[in-house]
Amino acid sequence: MSARPDLLRRRLLAAAPLGVVAAAGAGFWFMLAGLQDGSFNPRSVPSALLNRPPPPFDLPPVEGAPHPGLSSADLRAPARPVLVNFWASWCVPCIIEHPQLMALHREGVPIYGISYKDRPADALRFLAERGDPYRRLGADLPGRVAIDWGVYGVPETYLIDRQGLIRWRFAGPITADVLNQDLRPLLRRYA
């Protein structure tokens, strides 16, 4: 009689490892799914600049580009949220995210580019071949402004709200999933 609950407890205990394995399996599955669509990046680190204004900087235009350069004054109080995108023509993930930037550009979202350690001619060829989503384009040849922003690789994208504060940073390519699941809701929220 009293042996029954005891037996049940033992059986539950024996099944516990199976439960742990099942939970770990589910966790790994979600991680892999996130890795695939870009929403999970195990190497990403939160930005130290979140909810703060961008650092002061003043970048010249990319030589030969039809855009003005970019400075922190341009980000002080934008009329609508803007994106600041660090990129380079030599960066392969930048090719992956380019169609999403073009889509945002067509929708009228202002995107300011910072050309990171890139030769002007290479940058211009990239934009001529794949389309140009930028309204402004600053040239950061030595990569020092990128360090002031806490950039640790290209592409990196920052969302700046109408108060001129950094609200979101994404390290890595903005895939279609990242665009639809993360960025679009944020653009609506800060519009």
Partner: peptide, 8 residues
């Protein structure tokens, strides 16, 4: 460096 890149 901490101001730019955080604790990490």
């Amino acid at each position: 460096l901490h101001e730019r890149y955080g604790d990490f």
